[in-house]
Amino acid sequence: MFDLLSVNFDDRITGWRTQSEVLRYHVLVLVTDGKVKYTINSQEVIAERGDFLYIPQSTLRSGDTIPGISHQKYTVLITLKPGINLNIPFLHQGEFIRFRLSNFNYFQHKFMKLFEEMREGRSYASLICTSLTQELIGLLARELEKPEVTPAKMHYAQQVKQYLLEHYRDPVEIDQLGKLIHRSPNYTTALFKEVFGQSPVRYLHHLRMQEACRLLLHSDMTVAEIALYLGYYDSSSFFRMFRKSIGMSPSEFIRPSR
C-alpha cells in the first residue's frame, strides 16, 4: 500500500531550514506549536499550531524558521507503492493541502504515538507503525470530508471544549455541559462529536491522559498520586483508561525514558 520512510518531531530547532527540492515522497505535517514558513511551488505558506499540511510527491518545497518564532511539528514521510489505489482522495489528487483540524488534540496524540513507536524501535515496531500510519491517513481523510460546521455550532462546541480544558480534573456531567450552552445533554454530545470527532467524555479522558503522560515523565508523583490528582479515585480505573488510551501501562510508558 505505502512505505513509511520516517517520522520526525522538530522541537523548537534553532534556525531550522530545509532546502528547496522536488520531493520524492509525500509529507504529512502537523504543527503543534508556534509558526513555520514553507514555500510550496513558489507560493509562501505560513503554518501555525493546529494546521495539518499535506505536501505531495513532486512538489517543489522548501522550509524556514520565521525570525523570532520557534515551532514544534511532526512530519511523516511516505511513498505510495506503484499501481496501488488506497481510495484516499487527498493522496491521489497531487495537490497541496493546508487544513485546520477541528480536533487538534486528538490528532496530536496520534502523531505523538506514531513518533514514539518509531523512535523506540521495540519488537514489531515496523508492523505497528504501518498500522498507525494507515489509521492516521484514514482519520485525516475523514476529517477532510467533513461538511463545514456552522459558526453557531462551532461557538457552542468551543464553549464546551473550553470548559473541559479548564475543568478536566473535576467530575463533569453531560447535564452540566448542556446547561452551559442551554441545550439538552443528547444535543450537546452530538454537537461536540460532530465538531471534534469524539464525545465530551472521551475528550475529557484524553485531556487527563495527556496530563498523566506529562506528569509521569516530568514529576516525582507516584502513579497513585497522579490518578487521584486527575480525578480517578480508583487507581484501577486510571490504569485501564491509560492502557486503553496510550496502549501500554504507566510503568511501561516511563521505562524507556528512565
Rank of each mutant, 00 (worst) to 15 (best):
F2P: 04
L4K: 00
L4Y: 04
V7G: 00
F9M: 04
R12P: 00
R17E: 10
T18L: 02
Q19L: 07
Q19V: 03
S20T: 01
E21F: 10
E21G: 02
R24I: 11
R24V: 09
R24Q: 14
Y25W: 08
K35C: 06
I40E: 12
N41D: 15
S42Q: 09
V45D: 13
I46Y: 11
A47G: 12
F52N: 06
L53C: 11
Y54E: 11
Y54V: 02
I55M: 13
T65V: 00
I69M: 03
G83Q: 13
I84R: 12
I84Y: 14
N87I: 10
P89F: 01
L91A: 05
H92N: 12
Q93W: 09
G94R: 05
E95Y: 07
F99V: 10
L101S: 06
F107E: 09
F107R: 01
Q108C: 12
L114T: 13
L114D: 12
M118T: 11
E120G: 04
G121S: 12
R122K: 12
S126A: 13
I128H: 07
I128T: 14
L132G: 07
E135F: 03
L136K: 04
A141Y: 00
A141L: 01
R142Y: 01
K146I: 01
P147S: 10
P147Y: 08
P147D: 08
V149Q: 14
A152C: 06
M154N: 15
M154C: 11
Q162W: 00
Y163P: 02
E166D: 10
H167N: 15
R169A: 09
V172T: 09
V172L: 02
I174W: 00
I174E: 00
D175N: 06
Q176F: 02
Q176V: 06
L177A: 01
H182A: 06
N186D: 12
A190Y: 04
G197C: 04
Q198A: 04
R202G: 05
R202V: 12
M209P: 10
M209D: 07
A212H: 10
A212P: 15
C213Y: 04
C213I: 03
H218G: 03
L228N: 15
L228I: 09
S236Q: 15
S237C: 11
F239D: 14
R240K: 15
R240L: 14
R240M: 14
S249H: 10
S249I: 12
E252F: 06
F253N: 02
I254H: 03
R255N: 02
P256S: 08
